[in-house]
């Protein structure tokens, strides 16, 4: 009998141990799903705890994973606020009625692009930062090949860059989908797909993660990496020999967003966090955490390393149209069929 009893004891002890940490659920707390880098998530939550005394439980996951989790938890939500991450999944969550409409009193302090995005989502999400799309190239590798420094989107389809461009797969990465939608808006759909087919010949690998090409360009694994500019800035600040390019034809951008999850268990605290996260002092934390996006509050200090929007030619990005599930599926299916499936 001893072995069975021992097993039962172990089972019971295990059950008890599992019970204890989950048992205490104090008042005054908040669960945040965070979809930016860890270094930014942590000081953000710590600052909010200091400012309000509300205890924050934070999980960091990419925006795709968070979206999946929120969708799966829809009947019994666990999280209260979803903070950060590219705007498309936030728009999609708004479209699927997974998030709650909330008009923060601080909307007046925000840049126009943030307010416009909130309007398009019926105030179910709001912009907290923005980042423009572009690319970075490895200077020594470029010189070694004696290629002229690229300045435009059109430069990337030159034969000199054959097998030297890296970009993420739009099926898995919001960044790459932004590129797809940007090129379509910039050139019109048919020329855009001609361009993408030409680019395909130069692409050495479609990575899964959106920021990975910046790292590849930094280490020289690839000469050019197409990413959001702030990801490339992070590499450059860390000492990588890269140059950052905001393409001459104009480029698209993402709006990192924040939403309150429908059915949030701590709704009042969620709203307090929402208001606080839009304030200038909360948005100043990003720069300290080496995240060089542009904050959405007009009064928030802009990090000196951040690519300034006034120096970049931005297109008039239609987030509602290109963020919708139908349009996304159509574009991605066409990209899969005509670009990805083509020979190199």
């Amino acid at each position: 009998m001893t072995s069975k009893r021992g097993f039962a004891v172990a089972l019971f002890a295990g059950a008890l141990a599992a019970l204890v940490p989950g048992a205490a659920r104090a008042q005054g707390q908040l669960t945040v799903y965070c979809s930016v880098q860890e270094e930014w998530c942590r000081p953000m939550m710590a600052a909010f705890e200091r400012a309000t005394g509300i205890r924050v439980a934070m999980t960091r996951k990419s925006s795709g994973e968070t979206m999946t989790q929120i969708r799966a938890e829809a009947t019994n939500p666990r999280g209260d606020v979803w903070w950060g991450g590219t705007g498309d999944p936030h728009m999609q969550a708004a479209e699927e009625n997974l998030t709650l409409e909330y008009r923060s009193p601080r909307l007046a302090e925000l840049h126009d692009w943030a307010v416009r995005q909130a309007q398009q989502a019926n105030y179910r999400t709001v912009g907290i930062y923005a980042g423009a799309l572009g690319y970075s190239y490895n200077v020594p590798e470029l010189q070694r090949r004696r290629i002229e420094a690229p300045r435009c989107w059109a430069d990337l389809i030159k034969p000199a860059f054959r097998g030297e461009v890296q970009v993420a797969d739009p099926n898995t990465s919001g960044t790459a989908y932004t590129l797809l939608a940007t090129i379509v808006q910039l050139m019109g759909e048919e020329p855009a797909f001609d361009y993408l087919k030409a680019l395909h010949r130069n692409v050495n690998q479609y990575t899964r993660s959106g920021a990975a090409p910046a790292r590849a360009a930094a280490t020289g694994e690839s000469v050019v990496g197409i990413t959001f500019l702030h990801d490339a800035v992070t590499q450059k600040v860390n000492g990588a020999p890269v140059e950052i390019v905001a393409p001459c034809e104009g480029t698209g951008y993402e709006i990192g967003s924040m939403s309150i999850i429908r059915g949030a268990r701590n709704l009042d605290n969620a709203k307090r966090f929402f208001d606080w996260a839009l304030s200038a002092e909360a948005q100043a934390i990003g720069a300290e955490a080496k995240s060089y996006q542009l904050p959405s509050n007009r009064n928030a200090p802009i990090p000196p390393e951040a690519p300034r929007f006034e120096n970049i030619k931005l297109i008039d990005y239609d987030f509602a149209r290109w963020g919708s599930a139908a349009e996304r599926t159509r574009l991605l299916t066409r990209w899969d069929r005509e670009v990805r499936a083509a020979a190199r």
Binding site: P21, G22, T59, K61, S62, R78, S209, A211
Partner: peptide
Amino acid sequence: SARHNLATVYIVGRVEAG
């Protein structure tokens, strides 16, 4: 979850961030 995070998931996050 926020309260019960695991080492490997944390590491994946670090890798993702480069």
